[in-house]
């Protein structure tokens, strides 16, 4: 990974909720990088901080109470040194959002403005960032709708969000995100609100688009199946930390961290033997800020030991995935 320059390099990112002694760390030293033209998936359960990571990169954190307290978010624009988004000013961020980095949200209905036609909403981004005239922007919007597989785009561009079905709305949202051909696309659970057959269509669309534009995708999801289908690399998060990362095939087939193992063992799949009993992780995710030292997973880990009270080292396995766990070191 070192040879190639990363498009996005998140280093030791820290985000806290609240101020002073009552501040609770929601992201606690998160590091990962997204390579050009690749898809990195962040996977984890509620409260692990995956959406917070996406919002930090976009600098859309609800401030207050959330605040970036440390780390760097290096974004390579291809000209000169990488830009640190963690400390970039509002103007820089505004110019970046929608142009270099675009975001696709979970709820297509709330991501669209109900009072403007779809075409205008796509065109608006182009008028803002590319300086296109309204007429040119609208023509380009029709092209984009065609690209994302919306049938009869000329008519559809004049329609309002409520006239679109759920799947078509998400396609429109993707069209807006693609308008300026951003280098990085952040997708936060983009198919969770969709029906399964429509989810399959949207996932395929995103895959096609990535190949066509060679863009990078940061894909946030809770669904291991989606990870397997979409991602090249995966980051597993638990309680504000990265517990494991690596190539998708390695992490899914040979998870090294007990949390990743537990996560995979608790998901029913279509090809598992019918008589196999799921092995859920015991207990539940503790509140943010309740465990601030050592391995955060130790309260639920079946292999927890005394040493787990100390921060675990990050160890890379022969398969190529690296996990932060005392046990992994022993086995290699």
């Amino acid at each position: 990974m070192a040879a190639e320059r990363a498009l996005l390099d998140v280093q030791d990112l820290r985000v806290s909720f609240g101020e002073g002694p009552r501040a609770r760390p929601a992201l606690d030293g998160v590091s990962f990088s997204v390579r050009p033209g690749k898809t990195l998936a962040i996977v984890g359960e509620s409260g692990c901080g995956k959406s917070l990571t996406a919002l930090s990169i976009m600098r859309l954190l609800p401030t207050p109470p959330a605040r970036i307290t440390g780390g760097r978010i290096l974004f390579d624009r291809g000209d000169g040194p990488a830009l640190d988004l963690a400390s970039a000013d509002r103007r820089t961020m505004r110019r970046l959002r929608g142009k270099d980095i675009a975001m696709i949200f979970q709820e297509p209905m709330t991501a669209l403005d109900p009072v403007y036609p779809i075409g205008d909403q796509i065109g608006e981004v182009l008028v803002e960032h590319e300086g296109l005239s309204r007429k040119d922007a609208l023509a380009r919007a029709v092209e984009l709708l065609r690209l994302v597989g919306v049938p009869s785009p000329e008519e559809r561009a004049r329609q309002y969000p409520h006239e679109f079905s759920g799947g078509m709305r998400q396609r429109a949202v993707i069209a807006i995100a693609l308008a300026c051909e951003p280098a990085l696309l952040i997708a936060d659970e983009p198919t969770t609100a969709l029906d399964v057959t429509v989810q399959a269509q949207v996932l395929r669309l995103m895959r096609d688009i990535q190949q066509r534009f060679a863009s990078s995708i940061l894909f946030i999801t809770h669904d291991m199946g989606v990870v397997g289908q979409m991602a090249d690399e995966v980051v597993v998060m638990y309680l504000g930390q990265v517990v494991e990362e690596g190539p998708v095939s390695a992490v899914l087939s040979r998870p090294a961290h007990p949390y990743s193992q537990g996560l995979i063992a608790s998901i029913p799949t279509l090809d598992m033997p019918r008589d196999r009993v799921l092995q859920p992780i015991s207990g539940m995710v503790p509140p943010i800020g309740s465990i601030t030292t050592g391995c955060r997973f130790r309260t639920r880990c079946p292999h927890a030991m005394e040493i787990c009270r100390r921060d675990p080292p990050k160890v890379t396995t022969p398969a190529g995935n690296s996990a932060s766990c005392w046990l992994v070191e022993e086995s290699t």
Binding site: R24, G47, L52, P65, A66, P287, I288
Partner: peptide
């Protein structure tokens, strides 16, 4: 409620 903060993902 403290548990609600940060449970947005």
């Amino acid at each position: 409620r403290p548990t609600e903060i940060g449970s947005r993902d």
